[in-house]
Design a protein around this nucleic acid. Structure first.
Lengths: 346, 346
DNA sequence: ATGAAAGCGCTAACAC
DNA sequence: GTGTTAGCGCTTTCAT
């Protein structure tokens, strides 16, 4: 691999001149003829600046750390893709950090907080994008205190600035309003079990919509579980125990994967969706079309959320003050076949 | 951030001694007392070696580049997860390179091959794991020529050593044998459109099983399409045109996502699965359970494939000759509800 | 308009 | 058993 010195020798100039030319350094002018000789030499040697040496010198790696609980989770695909493309566009590379892999590396002398500090302390990344409710609030706060450039995606944490969320509350209201329009009044919520701001905002949207319609939310109507198939499966259980006359006629599930589990559990209980009970999910995916039955969903601007996270982190690295952004692109309902008028209305 | 010099000063020793102690350098013995002073100093300063400086010096980054067409694709989740966990265990970080992001970064002066060389030429990664049929064969061969440490996942390429695959042929045979056991004889194949070794091996398993059963594969029985919902949807089209008396009574789809598309298209055509036609897919996922109908699949050891890829790359970096491995863990059939005896047998 | 020189933080060969 | 030294490849003052 050719280095700067090789190029300089071939072009018969000083390495520093090569550096200036190749970086397009604006401060110093360079004779066109010299420039051309340098560019040609670099090309013929297939020269590529060594990222490590450059990073060591400039203290920038042009690399973003992406912390996620689980790549491969349906719900994250779109956001990840947005982050990836925006990072590429901004000339940044993405270092993948599956959060779970931090937990069990056998190094018990270091606590979890310390591990995240390592990531950035090693100097491999310029900043972190922390997606979804991976870290608990105290940990996030800790990172923020240490001035680690940080953008939270799909969540907020008290006292930490630099976050991107979608309008969860609005998305939830949209779901409930769809159910109202179909004639439902006893609407249940399968919420997110996590103690996060996002979980609260989705629940809040549900409660606001119900209140505005003058409907009192009965305690038995709301349950919660992890955003996974198994989570939805288990969470909906208490609702099945209730007599059909008081039990919700429709369920709003705060996660797509959770809704898949809910659908499965309802089917196992012999309930037909949507004839006996309607189901609508927060977040959309192409596969929702192919579930049994095809699932009505709320489509959120998740791609934009991912892109915006990168934009924010990059500008934070350039010294801009970190903001808290809500992507205000309108959520859309995708009506499929899991929602219908309540049985009593038939 | 404390550096080596800071630690040395505090421990009142030379930086090189600190380096030796902290790396656990076996060549040189160190007095226990000194060692303790150093370790204590490092701990109290929260010292972390700078990865860039170390990498510049040692010419190793302990980072693996993961090249994929599309994170977030269901079919890749398990493999990605295997790679991620194995990498973490081996003390390696993973740099994510979505293959598509290389295509459109506006830098048209460089051809695609050149871009991959850059990745490694920059010195950011020690080697590459290239997963799925992203790059065409010439490009892969080109990378291999340049001696870039490389492991191919889920594909092979003539002349390139260093690959991990599962036993696609065996998996395919298992699928066909399941259909035989149900009484099917006219079995169709919805293959992979890609010109890859993997596509051929899956088809080969199908043909071998058919031959062994003494069944001649009619030309109209085999179609192919991309491994996506839309791909499966479109690919199955020609089969729908055939009269029920000659058309396959069962379809083996060589990808999970493709099978979802096939299921959708069959339903749209008014065909009931499995009553009118059976469908079985290569590769499994939790969600297959929740499709309409629940999809019978062949479960391959994809997690192992991902882990093995890391193991191979790491040992290749240590100078071991690159091998071509087939994970020989037995594939399993997951019988759900998309397969049943053929209509004529009823 | 270009060159000289120092140094980012670390490791490794060698000296004592 | 520990210190000295050189240098990985680059950027960035400061000279000229």
């Amino acid at each position: 691999m050719a280095n700067l010195k090789d190029v300089a020798r071939l072009a018969e100039v000083d390495p520093s001149t090569v550096s200036r030319v190749l970086r397009g350094d604006p401060s110093q002018a360079v004779r066109p003829e010299t420039r051309e000789r340098i560019v040609e030499a670099a090309r013929s040697l297939r020269y590529r600046p060594n990222a490590l040496a450059r990073g060591l010198r400039t203290r920038r790696t042009d690399t973003i750390g992406l912390v996620m609980p689980d790549i491969g989770n349906l719900g994250f695909a779109e956001v990840t893709h947005g982050i990836q493309t925006a990072a590429a566009q901004a000339g940044r590379l993405v270092l993948l950090i599956e959060a779970s892999s931090l937990g069990d590396d056998g190094d018990h002398t270091l606590d979890t907080e310390h591990k995240y500090e390592q990531l950035i302390g090693d100097g491999r990344v310029d900043g972190l994008i922390v997606a979804f409710a991976t870290l608990d609030d105290r940990l996030v706060a800790h990172l923020a205190e240490r001035k680690i450039p940080l953008v939270l995606v799909n969540r907020r944490t008290a006292g930490v600035h630099g976050s991107v969320v979608v309008d969860d509350e609005r998305g939830s209201r949209l779901a409930i309003q769809h159910l109202f329009a179909l004639g439902h009044a006893r609407i249940g919520l399968v919420g997110l079990a996590a103690e996060t701001d996002t979980a609260r905002r989705r629940e809040q949207g549900y409660r606001t919509a119900m209140n505005q319609a003058g409907i009192r939310v009965e305690p038995g109507w709301t349950v919660a579980g992890p955003a996974s198939i198994a989570g939805g499966h288990a969470a909906v259980e208490p609702i099945l125990g209730q007599p059909a006359s008081v039990r919700p006629t429709a369920l709003f599930v705060a996660s797509l994967l959770g809704a898949v589990g809910v659908l499965g559990r309802l089917r196992a209980a012999g309930l037909r969706v949507p004839d006996d009970i309607s189901v609508i999910a927060f977040n959309d995916h192409e596969l929702a079309e192919h579930l049994d039955p095809p699932l009505t969903t709320i489509r959120m601007p998740n791609l934009r959320m991912g892109q915006e996270a990168v934009r924010m982190l990059v500008s934070a690295l350039d010294g801009a003050p970190a903001g808290d952004v809500m992507i205000d692109e309108e959520p859309h309902i995708v009506v499929r076949r899991s929602t219908a008028p309540p049985p009593s209305a038939g």
